[in-house]
Design a protein around this nucleic acid. Structure first.
Lengths: 349, 349
DNA sequence: CTGAAAGCGCTTACAG
DNA sequence: CTGAAAGCGCTTACAG
């Protein structure tokens, strides 16, 4: 049996055809699993493919067939575990469907986002999943993506000057999540509940505040404007803002926090002021980051399953491929309340 | 001025050539910035490119030129912030160099890794950066990657049956990092220092233990075998193993932890037993994860700058592209001691 | 300075 | 069941 020649050039269909005396067309049919090919011929070709170590050139095939086997995945902050999990979920589902992921990380810069999109588009992805950088605009994004490539926007709203949306969206159910958290605290007996952290101009903060406000109103509980406390959505800033909760008397006995980072910061701030989170003061987070379950006390929070959201995003863009002319869809992803020790009943004093 | 026609088909070089009455060759020269083209012609062509909204088809160009503009990036666990940061750094540097990143996440499964590599290779990346799944073998990886595609292996050793390595590597300086941490604790006055966490059969645990052992020996300090404590490299398991530190009398006064997760778990375990980390007991981590600086107390640790390592990996694989025949390189990445409050002087008792 | 022609590695009607 | 031919969108010597 002849050894595979130690080639420098890559092996092509023509090499295989030559090697077992059939046409390139026949080899191609074998590769694509066509039932037309005689099984003896097929066997010969397959042996030769193995012998020469043939590697399919999918780019050439895509060019000829005018198809694409890649999907662009552009995320605003891969260093953030939430988006890293999202990317992992999307990549998993795309890979399973036979697509390769073209990654781009924008680091929250709209300029980098434009550059990344322009570069990605030249590689001809079948679609693009975009978790937009803060401050990006629909008009510019669409100019880069073009009209031929389906776009799925994840997580944040992309302002669209033209009013009607021209892309699919997948968003968290922020309002419902905050409502669940607030209702949980109310159910424990709390009456004075704050909404803590986040900047008011962010669309997700606005949505979560709406859920909180709705739950309070439905329970007939008043909201003191002093209980709406803003802070950058980071642990450090949240810790610094802790004091704002206790400026007025009577102070809140619980807080619905904008997200887990803020909640963990608030725990730190409470501890520093001699209050025990989960005993003297109840709080909830949002996101269910890995740390939420191992903090002290463990954090009651809203699980959003970012990996599942990534899979969902992949499925949405893939289904769009087979259905290009349907109206843009707007999907709201489910959220779930996870009860842990940080949400205690009010201290009876 | 005629409006751009609302086309369904993608615009090609031929459309542009037709639109401004030159040949496709000339358009191609304009696109590639050739100085041969008359500036008036160039201007006409460029106007037409803009008017029709032309998008370069890089796949077609790559096919013709027999080049590639992508690099495969295969990581073992994108959900882990360390590797997510690594991926972000690699993507950033690759993008700057004009390459697009083909992402693949293996989730620590050698089987998925084979599937991912087989799929990636068909897209013809110019090179592959691989952070191997636990238990993967050089032989199988190489069979999938082939001999045409340069491979850079990051972080973990890939066992090679053939003895001599056939790929480039980039590894953390684990030994030096653990040595720095140990010397720091010794410098503070500690004499009984444990090495805490990680499984002995992992190559990185072995390397870090070697650094610890070396520093202890150089300082003339004995190591009680009971101070070498194994645990899964997770926060939870580490917290559970805390008691093992205090079984013998006199107990250690400090611990070099395998990584930050373990160190944070140990802090938790200490707190639960009424010992104050950073006051009654000193400890150090490894990795400098985001949480290390905001834990209570903040964690003294070894910074490895995963994002910088990603950039470094990109640069290594890119330099390999222009130098295919050089001997495989083995790069050791620098590490750095970051001193915070968790490493206190021994309690004077 | 510009165009005609060939070719990158594949696929796909179309004959036979 | 198999092969000859054309073509996907680009680039590159080669003429002129």
């Amino acid at each position: 049996m002849p050894k595979p020649p130690p080639q420098r050039r890559k092996v092509t269909l023509a090499d295989i055809a030559l090697g077992c005396d059939v046409s390139r067309a026949t080899v191609s049919l074998v590769l694509r699993g066509s039932p037309l090919v005689n099984s003896a011929t097929r066997a010969r070709v397959e042996a030769e493919l193995k012998r020469q170590g043939y590697v399919y050139n999918r780019a050439a095939a895509n060019l000829r067939r005018r198809t694409s086997s890649s999907i662009g995945l552009v995320v605003n902050d891969l260093g953030n575990p939430f988006f890293a999990e999202f990317a992992a979920g999307a990549d998993e589902a795309l890979g399973r469907a036979g697509f390769v992921t073209l990654l781009g990380n924008t680091g929250e810069s709209p300029e980098r986002q434009q550059a990344v999109l322009n570069s990605l588009v030249e590689h001809g992805p079948a679609g693009i999943i975009l978790s937009p950088a803060e401050g990006s605009e629909g008009e510019r994004v669409l100019a880069a993506v073009g009209v031929h490539t389906p776009l799925l926007v994840f997580n944040r709203e992309l302002p669209d000057a033209q009013g009607e949306h021209r892309w699919d969206t997948l968003e968290m159910d922020n309002e419902r999540g905050a409502r669940l958290a607030t209702e949980h605290l109310i159910g424990l007996g709390h009456q004075r509940i704050a909404f803590f952290g986040g900047h008011r101009d962010s669309s997700s903060v606005e949505q979560r505040r709406r859920g909180y406000t709705g739950a309070m109103r439905d329970a007939g509980l008043p909201i003191d404007p002093a209980w709406l406390i803003e802070s950058a959505p980071t642990r450090l800033e949240a810790a610094r803002q802790t004091g704002a909760l206790f400026l007025r008397d009577p102070a809140p006995t619980a807080a619905v926090c904008y997200n887990d980072a803020v909640a963990l910061g608030l725990m730190l701030g409470l501890t520093r002021r001699g209050r025990r989170p989960g005993e003297d003061f109840a709080l909830t987070g949002f996101d269910d980051v890995a740390e939420a379950s191992v903090s002290v006390p463990p954090l009651t929070t809203i699980a959003v399953d970012p990996r599942g959201r990534g899979r969902q995003a992949a499925e949405l863009i893939l289904s769009r491929l087979s259905n290009p002319d349907a109206a843009p869809g707007h999907t709201i992803a489910p959220v779930q309340l996870v009860i842990r020790e940080s949400s205690c009943a009010p201290h009876s004093s």
